[in-house]
Design a protein around this nucleic acid. Structure first.
Length: 449
RNA sequence: GUGGCUGUAGCUCAGUCGGUUAGAGUACCAGAUUGUGGAUCUGGGUGUCGUGGGUUCGAGUCCCAUCAGCCACCCCA
């Protein structure tokens, strides 16, 4: 006997069985469809880049998490840890051929060698979309609309896109004389929902070096509450005198007005001055999206505006805005909310291999249904009908087309709805038109829950 | 990277003071039922007790290491 190798996967890396992969692919399809409906075009980039492209782009933290090694030609290379740095490189290389604005989406796997936790892996997928090369507020509005449409298309009705503008925060920090410590202060502020105002104040004082008074002044932002109009009214005096802050408030107004004009319900998009985003590179509008039913899971779609995406790669200034769907986190949420169908077949129709010598009849019937755009599986062994139906049931097929000697001799086919157990005998023509009609009728009913 | 908790059947778990052949539920397979699935009944254990060492007459049980998972910090999607 050959030595046996233990089958296993690396820490933080996962297998995706059919029952996991089917909803996953469905979600990706939805994201792709929504992105495309706004004119975003797909791109892809290599998983592996020169190390110099990737390192030093995020924080020290991302450098530590970077998977890096020497390739066979002794080149230092790294696996991409997000899709933004590859986009920066891509844009620097290709803007001139592609033109501006560059609207792209990118759905791909990224790798981070960090410690794992539930919903946090070392290999995971990001679904980014970005608009590069414009400072127009129209792009900010559109970004909010895409997030909105995306969540609706996935099947959520109750969610909140929280919106803020980094300039408002900068304006306030300027007034308080904390502009040089913005990163540390904002990082602390970002934790407000998680650890509460006292702890945030402590961190601002100990880590960011703010005074107690300064910390309290910043925290006043989080006390600003109410509907969007009320928030705007309260924030204006807080940034009075700061050109940056006032500009930020004006931008927020424009985004809110634009989104409303596009028909988004008023309570879907909410001003929230406490969201800051940990990352340094956001400079304008910031988005975070929370599910009303599961706020604890965190933001499922985040993003914002940046001034200069690719300054490390080109002298051409490339401002832009974009956001990223947290695919794995969202799937975890959908699972928890019972939105994931427990199905391990992507095809709705099952044809048992009933009569041993009538395989050709089954293949012909299946081909006719597939030509009509309906997924069909013909069972591959002429087992007992009961066993075959049990298989169909376990896999989650919706319909079985049963054709034994009785049916075939009578020129019919039994169409059985496996969910409701309804059976009907349908004439079986050469083109299977009646069967296709019956199948479509059942599928159109949706899931009888 | 730091700290804590946990690893026994596909899954959830029991397993006494260290004691000889490792147990339940569920899932799975087969049959009851050679033309109809989810129920019921019958039969079947499918296991390197995560892995490797150590202590011991003897280890699922105690010790060390390691791997993996969960939680918190950190950071983020």
């Amino acid at each position: 006997m050959p030595p046996r190798i233990t089958p296993r996967t690396l820490k933080g890396f996962r297998d995706y069985p059919p029952a996991v992969m089917i909803p996953r692919e469905r979600l990706i399809d939805t994201a792709r469809r929504v992105y495309r409906s706004y004119g975003f075009s797909p791109i892809d980039t290599p998983a592996l880049e020169y190390l110099e492209i990737l390192s030093g782009k995020g924080s020290e933290e991302t450098d530590k998490q970077l998977y890096k090694f020497q390739d066979h030609g002794q080149r230092w290379v790294g696996l991409r840890f997000d899709l933004t740095v590859p986009l920066a490189r891509f844009a620097a290389e290709h803007v001139n051929e592609l033109g501006i604005p560059l609207k792209r989406y990118h759905i791909a796997t990224v790798w981070r060698g960090e410690n794992t936790q539930r919903g946090r892996y070392r290999e995971f997928m990001q679904c980014d979309f970005d608009t590069i090369g414009t400072r127009s507020i129209a792009a900010d509005i559109e970004t909010a609309l895409v997030i909105h449409d995306l969540l609706r298309a996935i099947g959520f009705d109750a969610f909140t896109i929280r919106i803020n503008n980094r300039m408002v925060l900068s304006g306030l920090l300027e007034r308080l004389g904390l502009a040089d410590r913005a990163t540390a202060v904002l990082r602390a502020l970002d934790k407000l929902g998680k650890i509460g105002p006292e702890k945030v104040a402590e961190e601002m004082i100990s880590v960011a070096g703010a005074t107690a008074e300064q910390a309290q002044n910043i925290l006043r932002l989080s006390e600003v509450a109410g509907c969007n109009e009320e928030v705007l009214r309260q924030v204006e005096p807080l940034v009075a005198g700061s050109e940056t802050g006032q500009a930020g408030v004006a931008k927020l107004k424009e985004v809110l007005d634009g989104v409303a004009a596009a028909g988004v319900a008023a309570d879907r998009v909410r001003l929230d001055l406490s969201i800051a985003r940990g990352l340094d590179y956001y400079t304008g509008t910031i988005f975070e999206t929370f599910l009303d039913a599961l706020p604890g899971i965190g933001s499922v779609c985040s993003g914002g505006r940046y001034d200069n995406l690719a300054e490390l790669f080109t002298s051409q200034e490339l401002p832009g805005i974009g956001a990223s769907l947290g695919l794995d986190r969202l799937l975890a949420a959908m699972e928890e909310l019972g939105m994931i169908e427990k199905v391990s077949t992507p095809a709705p129709v099952f044809i048992p291999y009933f009569e041993k010598d009538r395989l050709h009849d089954y293949l012909r019937l299946a081909a006719a249904l597939r030509a009509a755009g309906i997924g069909v599986e013909v069972f591959c062994e002429p087992k007992k009908l009961g066993q075959q139906l049990k298989y169909a049931d376990r896999r989650g097929f919706r319909i079985a087309l049963i054709a034994g000697a009785n049916e075939l001799n009578a020129g019919t086919c039994q169409v059985k709805d496996l969910q409701t157990q309804n059976k009907q005998d349908v004439p079986l023509e050469a083109n299977a038109a009646s069967v296709i009609a019956a199948v479509k009728a059942i599928l159109a009913q949706g899931n009888a829950v």
